[in-house]
Every structure is written in C-alpha cells, then in structure tokens.
C-alpha cells in the first residue's frame, strides 16, 4: 500500500481534523525524554522536597505542617535585608551588564573587522576560566595589597588602603565580569538579525544616528536585552561563590544564607523557606519575561 500515510501507518484512527500522529508523538517523546528525565530528577524532585520542607514544623522527624518559618523569615529584618540585598544585586548587575554589553554586542553584530574574532574570544573568555580562578583574580585587583590600592597609594592619593573587598560593589564587579558573555551573546544574536534597512529607512526619513538608535535599533533589540537580563538576573540572585569570596562574609545573599541555615545551623525548614523566597523571585522574573515574549510574538 504505497499511499499509506505515515499517520495511518502509525496506527492512529484517521478522523480529521483532530488526527494524532502516533509515530510523531512517539519520536518526539523519545527526543524529549532525556531532558524531561533530567529536569524531573534534578530539578522538580528536589524542588518539591524543598517546598514540603519549608512547611514542616521540624526536620528531620516532622510532627506537622506550619507557616511558622515563613512568618519568622518574612518578619525578621535580618532576612529581609538579605532578600533586599540579593534582588538589588540582581538588578544592579543586570543593569550594568546590559549597558556594558550593548556596545560590545553592537560591534560583534555589525563589524566586518578581522579583529572581530579576537573580541569575540575576549568576550567569552570569562567562561573559559574556572570561577574560582576568576574570583581570585578580582581579589588580586581589589584586595588591600591589591593592584588598585597599590597604585592609589604609590600615587599618594590615599595613605590607608580603601576597603574595596568585602563590599557590595566588589561583588557587583565580579558578577558583571562573570556574566557579561551571556548578555553580549543574547544581544548580539538579536542585533545581528535586524535588517540594516530599518536603520537606513529611519536615517533617510530624517533621524540622526542617536534618534535612529533610540527609536528603531534599541526597540528592535529589546528582545535580546530581555533574554540576556533574565539569564543574568537569575544567575546573579542564585550566585554563591562570588559573594562569598569577594564579599568575605560581609555581603550576605540568599544563596549564602541557604547554605548557612541548612549546613552550618542545621535549620532545614528556615533554609527551605529562604530557598522558596529565592525561587519565587526568579519565578516572577521568568513570568514577566513570558508575558513580554507573548506580547512581542504578536507582531
């Protein structure tokens, strides 16, 4: 039967318009299975465990469910300050990364220079070095005997070293450096796909380069900024190594607190609640991003 369609061969009852192609479904399922399995085992299961733990009155050996730990965390200024600091860190790092990355992305997307490949390598270089090595590099630059303090002292601008380490901004610097490749690549991929004739049309219609950028190129590249921002924000608020190493215990963020509560203080439910706060924060950002995408898909 030469004319047997794959759908029929797959065994599905042929009843249009809702014909299910079993063969297709099976092969799709096979393709997705590893990812689904990985997500289920590596993400969903621990998340559900954590969610449950955050409502337990004690762990191990729970005797019942309670909201006590949520109330405790969300009314304690110690935790509230950490929550605020973490999301502020996320916003600041995202904003700085976007501003720094945009011109680089522009260059990568538009330039025909033969140095472009070197710039590209430079951009992704933070990804090629271990996070510990990179952070130690920043310690060398920002430390009390570090490069910046040494230079400022020898120039006679300061006589006691500035406390560059252990500060919010040292963590920001380290995070921006680590995360900039994600932002550059997100923006560059969108910029590279924008037809140059849009900007040319704007120019011919009387828009100078600044207005062309603000009215046409920037709005058309906003998807790249959004995608990059989501990645950078989520990675920042979940970061552990950089805040610990560059903050030296002075810049407490949620990931550090979770570790502290669970591993150091062995207060599992409080740690779980903090983890839920962190998850909720990233969920909000992802939801906003989803809404944004849906709005943009319509045009």
């Amino acid at each position: 039967m030469g004319q047997l369609t794959p759908a029929l061969a797959g065994g599905a009852a042929a009843s249009p318009p809702r014909r299910i192609d079993t063969g297709k479904v099976l092969s799709l399922g096979a393709l997705l299975a590893p990812a689904v399995l990985l997500l289920a085992v590596g993400l969903l299961w621990p998340f559900l465990m954590m969610l449950r733990m955050s409502f337990l009155d004690r762990f191990p050996d729970p005797t019942g469910l309670t909201l006590e730990f949520y109330t405790a965390v969300l009314t304690d200024t110690y935790f509230l300050r950490i929550i605020g600091r973490t999301f502020a860190l996320g916003l600041v790092v995202t904003a700085i990364t976007a501003v720094v990355a945009y011109p680089v992305a522009w260059y990568l997307a538009r330039s025909r220079s033969r140095w472009k490949h070197l710039v590209f390598l430079g951009v992704i270089s933070p990804l090629m070095v271990s996070i510990i090595v990179r952070t130690i590099g920043w310690t060398i630059i920002l430390g009390n005997e570090g490069f910046i303090n040494a230079m400022l002292t020898s120039l006679g601008i300061i006589d006691t070293p500035l406390r560059l380490m252990q500060s919010f901004w040292s963590v920001v610097a380290g995070m921006v450096h680590i995360l900039i490749p994600f932002m550059v690549l997100s923006i560059a991929s969108v910029l590279g796909k924008i037809d140059p004739s849009y900007a040319e049309a704007a120019t011919v219609m009387g828009a100078n380069p600044v207005r062309t950028f603000l009215k046409v190129t920037l709005p058309l590249s906003v998807q790249g900024i959004a995608a990059g921002s989501v990645i950078v924000f989520c990675l920042t608020v979940g970061a552990y190594v950089t805040p610990v190493m560059l903050g030296r215990g002075q810049v407490n963020v949620l990931a550090v607190t979770i570790h502290e509560q669970m591993v150091v203080l062995v207060d599992w439910p409080t740690g779980a609640v903090v983890a839920m706060v962190l998850t909720a924060g990233t969920m909000v950002v992802l939801t906003l991003y989803g809404l944004f995408l849906r709005r943009h898909a319509q045009r």
Partner: peptide
C-alpha cells in the same frame, strides 16, 4: 542622509 530630505522605498519596504 538625514538632512537631505529624501523619500525612499526599500525593496523589502523596511
């Protein structure tokens, strides 16, 4: 170009 007062229709309309 933005000072030339030109009207242009591009092949893909842009």
């Amino acid at each position: 170009p933005w000072k030339r007062n030109i009207g242009m229709v591009f092949q893909n309309y842009a």
